[in-house]
Design a protein around this nucleic acid. Structure first.
Length: 806
RNA sequence: GCCGAAGUGGUGGAAUGGCAGACACGGCGGACUCAAAAUCCGCUGCGGGCAACCGCGUGGGGGUUCAACUCCCCCCUUCGGCACCA
């Protein structure tokens, strides 16, 4: 009954989503942890009365399927669907309350046709475009990679060092949303700060000024980008990237030309990573000079290995006095250093700087009418002056680059474009979607786009002129598939004629709680945010962000390293479930660490959880055997301290703590600890302790089943059945703690002398400070510490602590 | 270098201004058993003491407070992200 999604009712909707897996073959412990966390949240919200959508699907396109085809001769589709069938069985064994009817499989043409449709919408709006560019290339995967997929200079999937290639590729214009993606980082309170920080860093916004420096003896100029226009009077030279397009013109026919060319060749031959790590700043004079537009003074133009063509304009104004890189460069080549900001203490010596002064504090000097200003104000004034005098403009630069989505692989969504001899690049008309992946493709592993090997696929008539045309043979990055799948889940029944049903999406989205690995902090999570905004601007949805809450669970590690085949430290979930059952697997994952921290695998820990579940079973079994069908107890008027009172109090306390731990930041480890304490308390009582205890116990054990239901659903259901209740415990209301039972009439209060614990006293919880101090001073042990002194000061925190300051 | 997270017993971890170490693992001792397993009970931060107790203790140093793992300042270490980004 939990596995069908109800319509959202008056109690509201809750969309609980775990990142869908790649069907690699078998589930691993990371999946078990991820999906258990999500399932606890979904089951809890169900019992809280929310209409809950918890779907599951398959991120089914990707390289491993193709590699299997190359190595074993099995078709990627066969391999993928076999894996899905197996993994679905594995997930079902864990007792995850998914609505399997809504399953999404991205390699299904009914799904990927909408990838193609969204792509065409983006082409129409200029958000998808083709350009010739230097792109990241993985020699092992033999395909292009997006910037986000290069991790430490290596392929995100296979860790092969990435090289570059010059290729004509399709890009999605994520930079058009850079500002909005950044701005919303401040409006996602349900996201972990570290993920937001990573996204902010990745987008890398920087405000500055572009300034044109006219080349001496030429009508051309060099455009530089700076974030420090306040230092422009300190510019003593310009530095261009070695591959800056103006370099040849600057050196042509000059005596410096051979030296410059030799330098450029030397830098180009360097591996980009080695270049980044080489901290020595080297360069060469071009022989040309430029004019500083604010001072009118001529300055030499250099080429430097530390200037990157890929950022800003590929040219920088060098201010050695206020930029450490420029300072090192100037020192090496004996170029002038011009101090234009004096520090607040006035201690900087213009003739004897030993390092750049980069702080934005102090006053401008030697800067004409701007002298005397603070750097922050000078930045605004000088930027304005540059604009009004026509030397440049204020501009914002981003580190974020457009998303290259062309992949030279088979097992992905075909890019729905045609190349006509007469009409050029032509989109496939919407009515012709989906462009289906052909079956007759040889898997040779030789590289190149495999789709080009299928003549039937390759040749198609041009939709515009009917003449011969060739299909695009690259496929889409698989991250396109996962950029909107969470929207498709909400559409039910599925609409074969359109990607999204706006009403269905409005009913469920944004995702209330998303659960997945931190490794997607700037991959999937950035792309999905981008797609959501594009789809919003297409008018199909009204949300700005896809995921309200985000929980990034930690890794499962063993022996200090992430579980992996190569490390040989994997523990197979099937083995775990076969030996101990799904509930032990689930509870261990929840108890061993807070969800966002790494979890160290422990065989002994698993045993411990298994023992706990055994104790729960024996506890309930003992009482069921002894006292079936007892009526609900009446416990009012029972004296404080009576055993049945203790049972009742423990029950309300457990309800309170488990509820609070789930609600506050999903502290499942302490929620499970609270359940253990509860069970420990209930275990103190025996069926022959009398009818009052028996009545309280029966109620307490029912509550135990309810509290256990989200965590260990199988055992909870069985306990519920043993108690004679109809199924299902997971559909009953979550219990509510009565605040009256959470407080005690008499409390044990620690007594401190001068802040040090010296004893405890038992007082009425409502006792006044005077009464409590009197009891404390009457205590023989306390008297020994106080001696004959009168406390100089007394602090009493009601029911918590008393501190006597002597 | 910049940004972020973290540092607590033998181990995983708890406590977010009020009894540090909940809960669990491991260890030690005991019960049951011919024996073992399972189960149950007790003890378990470090040092001192026969003991009741005492001293010390949350990476290091300083500060605020009656009271600090918790707040403030400085420093160290680890992990993660970005990075000759102009």
């Amino acid at each position: 009954g939990l596995h069908t999604t109800p319509e959202p009712g008056p109690n509201g909707a809750f969309y609980c989503l775990a990142m869908f897996p790649y069907p690699s073959g078998r589930i691993h412990m990371g999946h078990v942890r991820n999906y258990t966390i999500g399932d606890v949240i979904a089951r809890y919200q169900t019992m809280r009365g929310k209409a809950v959508l918890q779907p599951m699907g398959w991120d089914a396109f990707g390289m491993p399927a193709e590699n299997a085809a190359i190595k074993q001769g099995v078709h990627p589709a066969t391999w993928t669907f076999d894996n899905i069938a197996h993994m679905r069985t594995q997930l079902k064994r864990l007792g995850l309350a998914y609505d399997w009817a809504r399953e999404v499989t991205t390699c299904d043409p009914d799904y990927y046709r909408w990838n193609q449709w969204f792509f065409l919408q983006m082409v129409e709006r200029g958000l998808a475009y083709k350009k010739h560019a230097t792109v990241n290339w993985c020699p092992s995967c033999e395909t292009v990679l997006a910037n986000e997929q290069v991790v430490d200079g290596a392929c995100w999937r296979c860790e092969t060092p990435v090289t570059t290639r010059e290729l004509s590729q399709w890009f999605l214009k994520i930079t058009a949303y850079a500002d909005e993606l950044l701005a919303w980082c401040d409006r996602l309170p349900g996201w972990p700060e570290r993920v937001l920080t990573m996204q902010r860093n990745w987008i890398g916004r920087s405000e500055g000024v572009e300034v044109d420096f006219r080349i001496l003896g030429s009508d051309r100029s060099i455009r530089i980008f700076t974030t420090r226009p306040d230092t422009i009077f300190g510019v003593t030279f310009l530095t261009l990237a070695p591959d800056h397009p103006l370099v040849p013109a600057l050196t042509a026919g000059r005596p410096e030309e051979p030296a410059v060319n030799a330098f450029i060749e030397r830098v180009a031959a360097q591996d980009p990573r080695a270049r980044a790590e080489a901290s020595t700043k080297e360069g060469v004079f071009t022989g040309s000079s430029a004019i500083n537009p604010l001072t009118g003074r001529p300055i030499p133009i250099w080429v430097g290995n530390f200037v990157l063509m890929s950022y800003g304009t590929g040219a920088v104004m060098a201010v050695p006095a206020h930029d450490q890189r420029d300072f090192e460069f100037a020192t090496r080549y004996r170029l002038p250093v011009r101090l234009v900001i004096q520090n607040p203490a006035g201690t900087l010596d213009p003739e004897g700087l030993t390092e750049a002064y980069v702080e934005e504090a102090g006053r401008l000097i030697e800067s004409d009418e701007f002298s005397g200003l603070a750097p922050a104000e000078a930045q605004a004034r000088i930027a304005a002056a540059i604009e009004t005098r026509g030397h440049g403009r204020r501009i914002v630069h981003y580190r974020l680059r457009d998303w290259g989505i062309s992949r030279q692989r088979y097992w992905g969504t075909p890019i729905p474009m045609l190349y006509c001899e007469r009409c050029g690049v032509v989109p496939v008309p919407e009515r012709d979607l989906p462009v289906v992946l052909p079956q007759d493709v040889p898997f040779t592993g030789r590289g190149g786009s495999p789709l080009a090997e299928s003549p039937q696929f390759l040749h198609a008539p041009c939709p515009t002129c009917g003449g011969p045309a060739r299909r695009e043979t690259d496929t889409m990055d698989t991250f396109v598939d996962s950029s909107w799948y969470f929207l498709r889940y909400a559409v039910w029944p599925r609409t074969p004629d359109r990607a999204l049903d706006p009403d269905a999406v409005a009913r469920w989205l944004p995702v209330s709680q998303y659960v997945g690995g931190i490794e997607h902090a700037v991959l999937h999570l950035l792309y999905a945010r981008f797609f959501t905004k594009v789809i919003r601007d297409l008018g199909l949805i009204r949300i700005d962000e896809p995921f309200s809450g985000l929980l990034t669970q930690g890794m499962v590690i063993k022996g200090g390293a992430k579980m992996s085949k190569s490390k040989g430290n994997v523990v197979d979930p099937d083995q775990l479930i076969a030996t101990y059952g799904a509930d032990t697997a689930r509870l261990f994952m929840l108890f061993a660490a807070p969800p966002d921290k790494d979890l160290e695998w422990s065989d002994e820990g698993v045993e411990g959880i298994h023992r706990f579940l055994g104790r729960v079973w024996r506890l309930v079994a003992a009482w069921v055997t002894a006292g079936e069908g007892r009526p609900a107890p009446a416990v009012n008027g029972i004296a404080d301290g009576a055993p049945e009172h203790r049972v009742r109090r423990a029950m309300h306390r457990a309800i309170h703590r488990v509820t609070k731990d789930i609600e506050d930041q999903y502290h499942f480890n302490t929620a499970v600890a609270a359940l253990m304490e509860y069970v420990n308390t209930l275990s103190e009582f025996r069926p022959d302790d009398g009818p009052a205890v028996g009545a309280a116990m029966i109620e307490a054990l029912d509550t135990l089943a309810l509290l256990l239901a989200p965590f260990a659903p199988h055992l909870a259901e069985q306990l519920w059945f043993e108690r004679g209740h109809p199924p299902s415990v997971g559909r009953r209301d979550w219990p509510v703690a009565d605040p009256a039972w959470l407080t005690e009439a008499r409390v044990t209060v620690p007594v401190q002398i001068n802040g040090k614990l010296r004893g405890t006293i038992v007082v009425d919880a409502s006792a006044s400070q005077e009464d409590v101090v009197a009891v404390a001073l009457a205590d023989p042990k306390i008297q020994g510490w106080v001696g004959g002194h009168v406390p100089r000061k007394v602090v009493y925190v009601q029911g918590r602590l008393v501190n006597l300051v002597l």
